[in-house]
Design a protein around this nucleic acid. Structure first.
Length: 283
DNA sequence: CAAGAATCCTGTCAGC
DNA sequence: TGCTGACAGGATTCTT
């Protein structure tokens, strides 16, 4: 479930294992994921030292030290719907299904990119111009940045005749939210998902901003605290249990309705995707 | 232009 | 059990 908090947790796990290491061996096992992979990906990875990581929206950027004659390059990675990173020690391993890329570090660890649905992507980008990459250039503000505030959100929503749910999923409005965290943040902010973006008031935008930040921060904290070095015993990196208040809870009580019992979490479909919400608390 | 649908792909689960 | 259809955490591209 790679939305922003999961991607952040995956990135921290990669950082702990890869930062400062040299990639002794790289294996790119297919020519494409969502898009064609760079023809020189395997070559560029092999022998490269990993300098550091950063996250932008749901993308992970891994900076590589320059080879003698070229500019510093970053690997741009997106997990799509089903992408996972797998970390394990060299040796004693059966083949993993759908492991499309595998790295081996100079201290004997294997880092695998596993993605059954292949909606993920990997590209190379000059480190000096990471944000100019076509996949990053159009992204809206980072939700956890101070620059993402009520005014910024209000301006982004102004005039949009689309449901607030769809607007918050639009990565040009705010970058990093997905279906789960949008549902959770709207529930916490008491905003009905079908309300038109343009009709969200300034006060409601402020409430949304603060609940988006709180929801994401809590999830990141849960990921960091529930994983040892961000790796679970099975080697899966960065995924964790989290108790959603409404997501996936159709028919259950929301536990926040005052007075009479909650009528139950409702599920509707908006632009082809499930929305979970409390019909009484969200207006 | 904006908004919604269709699309890429595989795995899982409910229902028969 | 095996089959079928619905659905899944994303985001671009195609239609209206």
């Amino acid at each position: 479930m790679p939305e922003l908090p999961e991607v952040e947790t995956v990135m921290r796990g990669l950082q702990a294992r890869l930062e400062g290491r040299v990639i002794r061996r790289a294996e790119v096992r297919r020519p494409d994921l969502r898009w064609p992979l760079p023809l020189n990906l395997q070559t560029r990875l092999t022998g490269a030292r990993v300098l550091g990581f950063r996250r932008r929206a749901k993308y992970i950027l891994m900076r590589l030290a320059p080879f003698s004659d070229d500019a510093a390059t970053s690997v741009l990675l997106h997990l799509g719907m089903s992408g996972r990173m797998l970390i394990r020690q060299h040796g004693s391993n059966a083949a993993v299904l759908h492991e499309h890329v595998e790295l081996e570090t100079d201290d004997g660890w294997l880092v695998g990119f596993v993605d059954p649905r292949r909606f993920g992507s990997i590209d190379l980008v000059p480190t000096a111009a990471e944000d100019a990459h076509r996949l990053l250039a159009g992204l809206g503000p980072e939700p956890l940045d101070d620059a993402f505030d009520a005014n910024v959100l209000s301006r982004a929503l102004a005039g949009r005749r689309t449901p607030i749910k769809a607007a918050l999923l639009d990565q040009r409005v705010v970058a990093g939210l997905g279906n789960i965290y949008v549902c959770e943040a709207m529930f916490r902010a008491g905003i009905a998902p079908s309300r038109l973006a343009a009709d969200v008031t300034g006060a409601q935008a402020a409430r949304l901003v603060s609940e988006i930040k709180a929801t994401l921060l809590e999830a990141i904290a849960a990921g960091g605290s529930s994983l040892r070095d961000y790796v679970q015993p099975d080697g899966e990196l960065g995924y964790f249990q989290h108790a959603w208040r409404v997501y996936g809870r159709e028919g259950e009580r929301c536990h926040q309705c005052p007075g009479p019992p909650c009528p139950g979490v409702a599920r509707i479909v908006q632009s082809g995707r499930s929305t979970f919400y409390c019909p009484r608390l969200q207006a």
